[in-house]
Nucleic acid binder design. Structure first.
Length: 821
RNA sequence: GCCCGGAUGGCGAAACCGGUAGACGCGGGGGCCUUAAAAGCCCCUUCCCGCAAGGGGGUGCGGGUUCGAGUCCCGCUCCGGGCACCA
């Protein structure tokens, strides 16, 4: 063996070494009880798929890990846990597909993920790992359900639900995309089933207004605002001719009430049965049946207007005019009051309806189209009599009411409140705020989830399982396949299903639905620091010290569901007296997506990257760093494997610089100045998750440090090792050791930059003539404007553009000179 | 339709608060070293005209503000994402 041969960088041996030493030395272990500056760094935990970790996961985790390691170098005690979102329909469907059992398959997948994650070199304290499918975890998921139940936030109701005939289960609205099941693409049908719901709707206003106080990615906040869908308006009561009942409608345009020429009820509106006249019963029934057959989603996506006349009339409380009452599927029972006042002149949908059914209006109600579609808002050149070619929905500044009795001339901006108040005084209206956000359906008629901890007793009714009897264990079911009955497979296990009533001891039956996977993940951040506790879900002394989470990083695909549900559960637990805070994540940043050749990676496209191969070839440090270098972390980027060589070359040069570092003598002043500039930039950029530019800055420094194979001084290199540590942790530890330092580089803090050392002695000033850059001059750092002008005029290539007497001179200190002639 | 992002060389991208557009990296070209190759190192690489010196253009499109605009304002186009018969 040639002992003179210099040792080259071998990522495999370096990484194996430190992945052995970290657990041995407890480098990543946190003492939760004794942290002085606790920092909770959270990343969204993965669903352990059989395919293993993919590049997207690794990109997300690496970015989060860098942030956590950086915070540690800033002197925080960082708790960065990780676990597995192992319950749920994903895992179950996959098990069904390959004919395995999720109870056997899941641990296998988790094991594979664990191996890959450890190879990636994350600073995770694995002692606090959670697995939502383990009884130690879902016991407490059931406990959370019981707390919400106790607070009256969980209730059961029969609801029209989206039913996927292929997955044979209920889907939440958000799991339906364009009328089809999000997972399998099958067209969804409508079914009526008894379901458990959480009253998240009750928290809509709070969930919305709190957003203003959160330091979250703007995209994420905006998605939540859209989802919550607050709208201000009024509920207006229309009395029904020759009936005691009246119809309440919700509108955001009470100002247009004089243009309300008919009412529309949702076909399933309870009043329909009451008011429909005998002559119209058959047609109304037929229309109702037709609507019921339709699934919920396609009903909402079809815009063709249809409807049926009930034969009944109501009185417009503003104009006193008799208006016909119709039913139509474009009015949804779930929103508002399930009934609207139709203002075809100023609402596109009502306009379409009036025109689509113009003949029916004529024959059934004797109304002309012009009579059905009057104008009540005018602006610009239009007057009260200008005809309407289309629904007029604009509100320019001069928009005002017309054909509206004593409100004529009132600006639209004032009219909403004025009309509402006028109607309110007369007992016909109330101002109302509505939300699009609907209650959270948590029931799943499936196997692979936590059984909902409820028992039904003939004598006592619905009985929550007492907390001390938790968990309601998920039994091993050899046949866990869902069937067409709409009832969970758990109902087939009679031994499990039949239980004595916890209250009276009589015969009772268990709830057979399991809860939504989103409930598992809506509280996992509370469990991590308490993962070792068997006696409680979480201990207030721990949660008050470590929560809310200081930094949460994850994908924006969870912007509405996971993040909104987590906020809701946290608020509910706070209201229940279990927590002292109501917002779980102080700061949230959405990372971007890794794409390949401009397209999202997917198996069908065959462009999925297996990180294992790259880690084996280039090392985890190079791969991590490359992923962070290919684009801004919060925007993602295009994966092209050729790019890895650049960061690998950088790490090779770092290795060489450390290996050959000169320990005698003094460092170079110019290099040290660049070093201090680099320390500042890398610190700023890393804190802002601008990892790509932080890496670029370190590369730039390397180009100075190793220019022309220059031998560097140890003082020039050591701080760089600290800067690179969050990005390439194994290499940094090795270099730290090579340089004779004790302990982990992650306990060494962050190098300080000295403002005095940043200063350049001469600076370059760009010189413009008439705003066009004509050259640049070098002057002393403290040069005055006169010095700079003199230097510029001394340069002929600049001076020749200055024709005539300078009229104006603009000098931006240290940057630029602009001569205007 | 409404609400968020975004558009910059051959490619991924950078640019503080309006102040030298293209840092850093990939790819490409040339050179040094080597018997040779790899590796390493050095130089060049926005486009157009030009042998060069030099000149002109240029950050999706059209206007505007300014001494000066990738950045600000007005009006569009296209791409990504969210919401959507939600009254």
């Amino acid at each position: 063996m040639d002992t003179n041969e210099p040792i080259t960088y071998d990522p495999q041996s370096v990484e194996t070494k430190w992945q052995r030493l970290w657990p041995e030395r407890g480098t990543n272990h946190v003492d939760l009880d004794r942290a002085e500056r606790p920092f909770y760094a959270l990343m969204m935990f993965p669903y352990p798929s059989a395919e293993g970790l993919h590049v997207g996961n690794l990109f997300a985790f690496t970015g989060s890990d860098i942030s956590a390691r950086f915070q540690r170098l800033q002197g925080h005690t960082v708790f960065q846990p990780l676990g597995y979102d192992a319950f749920g329909i994903h895992s179950e469907n996959y098990a069904l597909k390959i004919g395995a059992h999720p109870m056997e398959l899941t641990p296998k997948n988790v094991g594979n993920f664990q191996r890959q994650l450890e190879r990636a070199g994350l600073m995770v304290d694995w002692r606090y790992k959670v697995d939502t499918s383990q009884r130690d975890y879902y016991r407490w998921t059931q406990w959370v359900f019981l707390q919400l139940h106790k607070q009256g936030l969980a209730y059961k109701k029969a609801a029209a639900v989206n039913w996927c005939p292929s997955c044979k289960t209920v889907l939440a609205n958000e799991q339906v995309e364009g009328g089809a099941c999000e997972r399998c693409g099958t067209v969804v049908e409508q079914r009526f089933l008894e379901q458990w719901f959480f009253r998240i709707g009750q928290y809509a206003e709070r969930l919305l207004t709190n957003l203003d106080t959160l330091d979250w990615s703007e995209v994420t906040k905006s998605a939540q605002r859209n989802w919550i869908g607050r709208s201000e308006g009024a509920e207006i009561t229309f009395s029904v001719e020759s009936h005691e009942e009246s119809v309440r409608v919700f509108t955001t345009r009470p100002d247009t009430i004089f243009g309300a020429t008919y009412l529309v009820l949702a076909p399933e509106h309870p009043l329909v049965e009451v008011i429909t006249t005998p002559a119209h019963v058959d047609a109304v029934r037929a229309y109702q049946e037709r609507t019921t057959k339709q699934d919920l989603v396609s009903r909402k996506s079809i815009t063709e207007k249809t409807g049926a006349f009930t034969g009944a009339y109501a009185i417009n409380p503003a104009s006193g005019v008799r208006v016909p009452i119709w039913i139509a599927d474009y009015v949804l029972m779930q929103y508002g009051t399930g009934a609207i006042m139709a203002v075809p002149g100023h609402d596109e949908r009502d306009f379409e309806f009036a025109h689509a059914l113009a003949d029916a209006f004529k024959s059934e109600c004797g109304m002309d189209i012009a009579q059905v579609v009057p104008r009540v808002v005018a602006a610009g050149e239009h007057t009260a009599d200008s005809p309407l070619e289309a629904a007029y929905t604009d509100s320019p500044a001069d928009a005002h009411l017309v054909n509206s009795a004593h409100f004529d001339g009132t600006p639209v901006t004032e009219a909403k409140a004025a009309v509402t108040e006028w109607l309110r005084m007369r007992g016909h209206a109330e101002p109302v705020v509505n939300f699009r956000l609907h209650d959270w359906c948590v029931s799943r008629q499936r196997y692979w989830g936590p059984p909902i901890p409820i028992v039904y007793c003939d004598a006592c009714g619905t009985v929550p399982v007492p907390e001390e009897q938790l968990p309601v264990e998920l039994p091993y079911l050899a046949d866990f396949k869902p069937d067409d009955s709409g009832v969970s497979p758990l109902a087939r296990d009679a031994e499990w299903f039949n239980v004595p009533c916890p209250t009276c001891g009589g015969a009772a039956r268990r709830e057979t639905d399991v809860s939504d996977t989103f409930l598992d993940s809506a509280w996992y951040f509370l469990r991590y620091p308490n993962a070792l506790r068997q006696d409680v879900a979480f201990d207030p002394s721990i949660t008050s010290r470590w929560l809310p989470v200081n930094s949460y990083i994850g994908g924006n695909e969870h912007a509405v569901l996971h993040l909104l549900y987590s906020r809701f559960v946290t608020m509910a637990l706070k209201d229940g007296g279990h927590l002292e805070f109501e917002e779980p994540f102080t700061r949230f940043r959405a990372h971007g997506l890794i794409i390949r050749d401009g397209a999202k990676m997917s198996k069908t496209k065959g462009n999925v990257i297996n990180p294992d191969e790259y880690v084996a070839e280039w090392g985890a440090d190079s791969f991590r760093m490359y992923l962070m270098f290919l684009g801004p972390y919060q925007e993602g980027g295009d994966f092209r494997s050729q790019g890895i060589s650049g960061v690998r070359r950088f790490l090779d040069r770092l290795w060489t610089a450390v290996r050959d570092a000169e320990r005698e003598g003094a460092p170079d002043a110019d290099v040290m100045r660049k070093l201090h500039q680099t320390i500042r930039k890398v610190g700023d950029d890393t804190a802002a998750l601008a990892y790509n530019t932080a890496i670029a800055a370190m590369m730039e420094y390397m180009n100075v440090l190793r220019r022309a194979e220059r031998v560097s001084h140890v003082d020039e290199v050591l701080p760089l090792v600290q800067l690179v540590a969050p990005f390439a942790p194994h290499l940094a530890e090795e270099c730290w050791e090579q340089l004779g330092r004790d302990g982990s580089v992650f306990d060494a803090g962050w190098p300080q930059w000295d403002p005095a050392l940043l200063e350049e002695s001469t600076i370059e000033i760009a010189v413009q003539v008439q705003g066009k850059t004509r050259g640049r001059v070098h002057v002393a750092a403290d040069a005055t404007q006169e010095d700079v002008v003199a230097a510029a005029m001394a340069d002929d290539s600049i001076a020749r553009f200055v024709t005539g007497v300078p009229k104006k001179i603009i000098y931006v200190k240290g940057r630029l000179l602009n001569i205007v002639v």
